[in-house]
Amino acid sequence: MGGMDLRIFTEPQQGATYDTLLTVAKATEDLGFDAFFRSDHYLHMGSVDGLPGPSDAWITLAGLARETRRIRLGTLMTAATFRLPGVLAIQVAQVDQMSGGRVELGLGAGWFEEEHRAYGIPFPKEKFSRLEEQLAIVTGLWRTPVGETFGYDGAHYQLVDSPALPKPAQSRVPVLIGGQGTTRTPRLAAQYADEFNMPFASAEDSERQFGRVREAAEAAGRKGDDLVYSNALVACVGKDDAEVARRAAAIGREVEEVKENGLAGTPAEVVDKIGRYAEAGASRMYLQMLDLADLDHLELISSQVQAQLG
């Protein structure tokens, strides 16, 4: 089965230092994976302590931009509530320059109210309309030719005579939009996204949602195939059942649950399940790695899963 990119996706709010993330990113590069992505959260979830505490997504990616050479770098997803859109456009453009043009921006509305309360970040009611304005502004700033200015007069954000600098290194930084929403999300993806990501969903639900995005793209005058379609799923791969069980226990999951909801089992089982997502229309898979100390897990996926995907 050809044409399936595997990307490594981390959740550092659950507890990770920059050095741990750097080690994982270097392994991601050395083992031939396509990209290193991270969540953008400031508070741990569930029963973990989250020590030593959260790290900032774009500061992390700036560091990794200088310490990696090949892999793509990005967020699943940056919350539009965290940064003003003009500031975000500058930050992402700068990290893109620092990486030599390897950055991708996943942008979402933001949903985790507790992290906003914990760090004094406003959590507005009308999050979706803010996301829409952010997408218009960030992409509009980057698209403005050098020497021209950008203006925007929205309900939430106003920009006047912006020089729209700096520009990213890439002529177009890929923008990722994702989620389960059935009407507004596909419409927004059709208007702004280079990639549509379906997080933690079945192949059947993904196929339905990919279909909605394709229809919205065609309604907006694009081809459905203009977008990359991707999934994000937890990974828990072992060379045998005992290793699968050990890895599931290490991330606090039951084997049967993680087999049902993620990419879990032996390499053969996981390759088979990835195949079902490929049939649903996905050409890219984000492997959520929850035990960042387990580099053998990455090595196994590289040698036994990725190798079979050709």
Results as ranks from 00 to 15, higher is better:
Asn197Ser: 10
Asp241Gly: 00
Ala203Arg: 12
Asp240Ile: 06
Thr266Tyr: 05
Ala193Asp: 08
Arg253Cys: 08
Asn231Phe: 14
Glu256Trp: 15
Ala245Pro: 04
Asp272Cys: 14
Lys239Arg: 10
Ala268Ile: 14
Val244Lys: 01
Gly211Glu: 10
Asp241Ala: 02
Ala201Ile: 13
Tyr229Gln: 07
Ala249Val: 10
Gly265Cys: 04
Glu257Phe: 15
Arg214Lys: 07
Ala201Glu: 14
Glu243Lys: 04
Ser202Lys: 09
Val237Ser: 02
Gly265His: 03
Val234Gln: 08
Val258Asn: 09
Tyr192Phe: 08
Val237Ala: 03
Phe196Thr: 08
Lys259Phe: 11
Met198Thr: 00
Ala193Gln: 07
Ala217Thr: 03
Ile251His: 05
Asp226Cys: 14
Gly224Asn: 03
Asp241Ile: 02
Ala216Asp: 01
Gly265Arg: 04
Gly262Lys: 02
Glu243Pro: 03
Ala216Asn: 00
Thr266Phe: 06
Asn261Cys: 09
Tyr229Arg: 06
Ala235Val: 11
Phe200Thr: 13
Asp241Gln: 01
Ala232Thr: 08
Lys223Gln: 15
Arg246Lys: 11
Asn231Met: 15
Val244Gln: 00
Glu254Arg: 12
Asp226Asn: 13
Asp194His: 15
Ala203Leu: 14
Gly221Val: 07
Val270Lys: 02
Glu195Met: 15
Gln209Arg: 14
Glu256Leu: 15
Glu204Ser: 08
Asn231His: 09
Phe210Leu: 10
Ala201Leu: 13
Lys259Ser: 07
Glu204Gln: 10
Ile251Ser: 02
Arg253Ile: 10
Lys273Cys: 06
Asp225Val: 11
Glu254Met: 14
Ser206Glu: 11
Asp240Thr: 03
Val237His: 02
Cys236Leu: 04
Ala217Glu: 03
Glu195Arg: 15
Ala217Phe: 02
Ala203Met: 14
Ala193Val: 09
Phe200Asp: 14
Lys239Asp: 05
Val244Gly: 00
Gly252Val: 04
Asp240Trp: 01
Ala203Gln: 13
Tyr229Glu: 06
Pro267Cys: 12
Asp194Cys: 13
Lys239Asn: 05
Cys236Gln: 01
Asp241Tyr: 00
Glu218Met: 02
